[in-house]
Design a protein around this nucleic acid. Structure first.
Lengths: 174, 174
DNA sequence: GGGTACATGTAACTGGTTACATGATTGT
DNA sequence: ACAATCATGTAACCAGTTACATGTACCC
């Protein structure tokens, strides 16, 4: 039930329609959380029913502009403070690494170097995003930059690891 | 549909019952993939029905020891090579960071330092695991070590990032 | 005899994905 | 006029979690 909080967070920043939120999920939030269109509309319905958000305005084409309510903001805050920083415990890439003994050493190295490449690509993409955005000193900027920096460090870590791992496979498996 | 491949991978290493596999998910695979008991038995049933695994032996207490079949091994291999190394696109911790402007700077720093602590704990735990296991030159050892090293680097990255981020909040938000 | 570990299974529910379906407004 | 974009919604399905349910074998 985290999509719920992602939606509340976005609406806490500024009101918007389902369509607007979908755009924001695709762009700014892409690294952090994703949502499909059908999931989003469903969640908006539920949030409205429980009065955590409300329709603040209606527009053309049936557009409903939602805004967060005080009780919604309350829920968002308590979720932010409810401390349980847990590391993700599922990683498909690592699962493959785990079983890489099933294929030839050349294929295993190929997998790892492809991974290094894709991590490099991610790092470059994030660096471009960092350049493109004009950061100010708003909360969204400050905390968005923290999240972006995490992404850059993650990408660098994975690239370096994958290069190292490919080298280990070369030296230990030929 | 990745649990399917996790199960095939484990059975490719060595045969075992549902109960055995559950143990292996809890211990060695903990960082990489998780499964609940009910999910696991369901998946074993489906895999058997599609002949990717088979009951190789039966034991006391209704124990069914499964083994991978040649077609199962085939499916595992092609999954391993089917290249699409994608970075995970959902991270609850980062989502919270994203909206940390909603709480006070002290609370935001508290969140970040707690995260640094928990990353440090994870790093230490993985270091202990590394010490405890006696690594040989089997595939399971070599590739398991690569996965473990990823975990250590991940933990170190997150700890350093969280410390840095707490400092940014201190200097930019007081 | 009794506790622990072994061992499997089902049901109800939640979260997420894909596909289908429909229609209004705006800009050219 | 017509294409693109805006805009919302529903249905079927798959993956994963929690809780319930049951029973056997082994060791002391």
């Amino acid at each position: 039930m985290t999509l719920r909080h992602a939606v509340l967070g976005l609406l806490a920043e500024s009101p918007g329609s389902g369509y607007d939120l979908l755009k924001r999920f695709e762009s700014a939030m892409g690294l952090v959380w994703t949502a499909t269109q059908s999931q989003l509309y469903g969640e908006l319905g539920k949030l409205e029913k429980s009065s955590l958000i409300e329709v603040a305005a209606e527009g053309p084409r049936g557009r409903k502009e939602y805004a967060i309510t005080p009780s919604g903001r309350e829920v968002l805050r308590s979720w932010l403070l409810e401390e349980r920083p847990v590391a993700p415990r599922r990683n498909e890439m690592l699962l493959r690494v785990y079983f890489l003994g099933e294929v030839s050493p050349e294929q295993a190295r190929g997998f790892l170097t492809a991974n290094a490449e894709s991590a490099r690509g991610l790092g470059e993409e994030l660096a471009r995003v960092e350049q493109a955005v004009d950061w100010d000193d708003s909360d969204a900027s400050v905390f968005g930059r923290l999240a972006l920096e995490w992404g850059k460090r993650y990408a660098a870590m994975e690239r370096e690891w994958a290069e190292w791992a490919a080298e280990v496979v070369r030296s230990e498996r030929g």
